[in-house]
Amino acid sequence: MQNTKSPPDVIFSIPADLPIPSDDGACEHLKNMRIPNISLWSTDDQEINLFSLPGWNVIFCYPMTGRPGVSIPEGWVQIPGAAGCTPQACSYRDNHAELKRNGVGVYGISTQTSEAQKEASNRLGLPYPLLSDADHSFSTALKLPLLEVDGLRLIKRLTLILKDGVVKKCFYPVFPPDKNVVEVIAWLSENQA
Rank of each mutant, 00 (worst) to 15 (best):
V10M: 08
A82S: 14
D94S: 02
N180C: 12
P176G: 02
I38V: 10
K100F: 10
G151H: 04
M1K: 13
S137G: 09
L53T: 12
S114E: 13
V181P: 09
I185E: 01
N95S: 13
G103F: 08
Y128P: 00
I79G: 06
D164Y: 09
P127V: 07
D150T: 08
P8K: 07
S13T: 15
L40S: 02
T86N: 15
T86L: 01
N49E: 04
V58F: 11
P145G: 06
K156G: 01
K100T: 14
T159K: 03
S132P: 02
W56H: 13
G108Q: 03
P177A: 15
I11S: 05
K100M: 10
K5G: 08
P63H: 04
V10K: 12
W56M: 10
K5W: 03
A186H: 13
C85D: 11
F171E: 05
P36A: 08
L124H: 12
L53K: 12
P87T: 03
E190F: 07
I38D: 04
A186N: 15
L53H: 08
S42K: 00
I185Y: 06
R34T: 15
L147M: 14
D164L: 00
G165F: 01
A16D: 14
A16S: 14
A16R: 08
G125F: 02
A16E: 13
G25M: 12
G69V: 10
T140V: 09
G55A: 09
H29I: 13
K169P: 12
L142A: 06
C90A: 05
P129I: 00
L162G: 01
V167S: 03
I20M: 12
L99K: 02
V106Q: 03
S139Y: 05
N95Q: 11
W76D: 06
Q78L: 10
E47P: 11
T159A: 11
I14M: 15
V70D: 11
D178Y: 06
L50T: 01
N37K: 12
G108E: 03
I38G: 03
G84W: 10
A16Q: 13
E119W: 14
Q46A: 13
P54S: 10
P73G: 12
V70P: 04
Q2G: 06
S114H: 09
E98Q: 14
L30V: 06
E115C: 08
S13M: 06
C170F: 00
A120Q: 09
K5D: 12
F12R: 09
S114N: 13
L18P: 02
V149P: 00
N3E: 09
T4D: 06
Y62A: 07
D17I: 01
E148P: 09
P145N: 05
S110W: 00
P145I: 07
P73Y: 07
G81H: 09
G84M: 12
M1A: 13
L30P: 08
I155H: 00
I59H: 01
K169M: 06
L53W: 04
T111C: 15
S91G: 02
K168S: 08
P36E: 01
Y128M: 07
L146G: 02
L147E: 11
G81C: 04
R153S: 15
V184K: 00
S189M: 05
F51N: 08
L152K: 14
I11M: 13
P19G: 05
